[in-house]
Nucleic acid binder design. Structure first.
Lengths: 158, 158
DNA sequence: TTGAAAAGTTAGTTTGGACTAACTATATTA
DNA sequence: TAATATAGTTAGTCCAAACTAACTTTTCAA
């Protein structure tokens, strides 16, 4: 009954799904060109990835046709995007990392974090946000702690 | 003046350096066999990696000879190992993730975290450890918060 | 001291994921 | 509606990183 292949997706294929999802979000449809730009790969690479994703029944794709996510593809994409957002949020909101650095690192780290860690991380962000014992705000507390004890590090930015 | 190549190492090569470092730590010397076991790759793959690392002057390697890290190799390895340990510590000590899951995820995530994030993360672990305003321990606080608000998730363990 | 067993290497193959160059299809606009 | 620009595909290449099978070197025990 044509059950879609449930093998774990490679980091690369997850990136393509994520890009397609993000491009589809604002009403507009994902185009090969835009996917290539978003991921900074060649158009030919996009074609190759789309063929594989279509085989796995994660995208609806016919040569020269529109590109949309299948039901399953959408579920997968959302899983990846959600993970990305949680990780990025942790970097920015909790650690106070620069947005651009956080964005880039989240993009790579998202493939390494399994469900247990992601859920714990999400819960931890909520914990930090909601913490308010005796009027102490953990964001402020950590900021000032970092000012006192944080290393300079920096260097190559990322 | 034979300046060692300073190109960024691939995740794979970082893994090899890390394994060699860890095997060398307890006095004993890294052997090809043990590296293969540690990384769960074939002995032939180890030979290939060692050749490349030797070219980059990160290991001292002659066929059939002992394997040791060069000065620069040791610096690189320590950088990777330190990163790994900080990430794993965060997962286990702060998030309360199972040790085995944390270990595995840290191994993959270590290649994605740049210096800025690692330093912030380290500082954050120290912050959580040292926090003691009005006798509140953040570890306890989060544990109980997670019990109340954490999702079940689980499923495929990782 | 010699001859298996173990360790290590070499040669050749595979796979995933990228690339360029050249071709084809679609869209646009004069 | 024909010419041309743009988008997309195909074919072929490259590279890193893994693999197996077969070979060589080293080690160790009889």
């Amino acid at each position: 009954m044509a059950t879609a292949k449930t093998e774990k997706l490679s980091a690369s294929l997850e990136d393509y799904l994520e890009a397609i999802y993000n491009l589809s979000v604002d009403g507009s449809v994902a185009r090969s060109k835009n996917i290539a730009q978003a991921l900074e790969v060649s158009r030919a690479s996009v074609t190759g990835a789309l063929r594989i994703l279509a085989e796995k029944q994660l995208v609806n794709y016919k040569p020269y046709g529109y590109i949309t996510l299948t039901k399953q593809g959408c579920i997968e994409a959302q899983r990846v995007v959600r993970k990305h957002n949680i990780i990025e949020k942790f970097f920015v909101d909790v650690l106070g990392v620069e947005h651009t650095v956080a964005q880039k690192a989240a993009c790579e780290a998202e493939h390494a974090f399994g469900p247990q860690i992601v859920e714990k991380l999400l819960c931890f962000i909520e914990f930090v946000n909601s913490y308010n014992k005796n009027g102490y705000d953990l964001h402020d507390e950590f900021r000032s702690f970092f000012r006192k004890h944080g290393s300079i590090a920096a260097g190559d930015s990322n």
